[in-house]
Amino acid sequence: MVDAPITRPRTRRDGQFDRLRDRETSMQGKAKRRGRFLGKFLSNRLALVGFVIFTIICLMSLFAPLIAQHNPMSPNLRAIAQPPSVEHWFGTDKTGRDIFARVLYGGRVSILVGLGSALLSALIGVIIGVYSGYVGGWLDWIAMRVSEIFMSFPQIILVLLLVAILGQSLLNLIVIFTLTGWGGIYRMARARMLSIREEEYVQALRSFGLGPARIAYKHMLPNALGPIMVNITLSTAAFILQEAGLSFLGLGVPLSIPTWGNILNAAQDLRVLEQNWWIWLPVGATISLFVLSVNFIGDGLRDATDPSQQG
């Protein structure tokens, strides 16, 4: 922007304004805001603990081949259902597979399903929600009705119905979770857009002649990112719980692939439940710990991004 030339002599005020403007243009304001966000997030002890646990479990799953000394898939008939030992940290299961290795490798699939479905459904929900929330019209009407239909099913019934129709596979499960999960984040993004649609900066952009897509995605979306991030974390937690539940029933990821839920599936047998606690207890604890850490992170994010949730 070019200022009108100053015709009067410069005063001390002018110098102050210039400095202020320089500071703003050098993006100091933005850096400071991010600093406040980080500071608030880090000062939340639970969120920090959650983040540390989350990172540890993710890294251990990621580097599973380096950490685990056994193949998670290969049975060992000489070591069936052995309790934890130096050789097998979490013991072995009914076919002699090392449970520690299975938990690590299972984490890869479970986290992939949870995080992948959450990100995909967020992507779909945000793309539709941000645009239709700003523009409105028939697109908004249709998207709203479709999401209403999806949301009037109890989630697990819809998931199982789709499993019955589409069949069981890892990819299908991610698709099904995405299909059942986009509605919530769509509605949230849409509501957020509706509430900032009439703000002055949006009106200003409109009067400059910017297209709706550009205003919606480039200028309004960043102001809705806080709640979207919170929603992604919380739905990651929900999807991991659902995958575990479905696989526990034997209806999630096919049993040949180790996932946290599939390992727990063995505990449906009352004898395993009673005599071989190491087959199911450590996995259950790992799922709980992981979901807990994700929930702590979500809460921390909410407190750090939402100014109305003080204290």
């Binding site: 937690a237 719980l241 575990a244 539940g245 526990f248 727990l264 505990a267 439940l273 009673e274 606690w277 199911w280 207890l281 259950g284 799922i287 709980s288 979901v291 807990l292 929930n295 702590f296 809460d299």
Partner: peptide
Amino acid sequence: GMLGVSIPEFFFGLVAILVFAI
């Protein structure tokens, strides 16, 4: 409360069966 929403329900159930029933 956070623990309540984070621990899978069926895992609660399994532990409860082991402790209170078995």
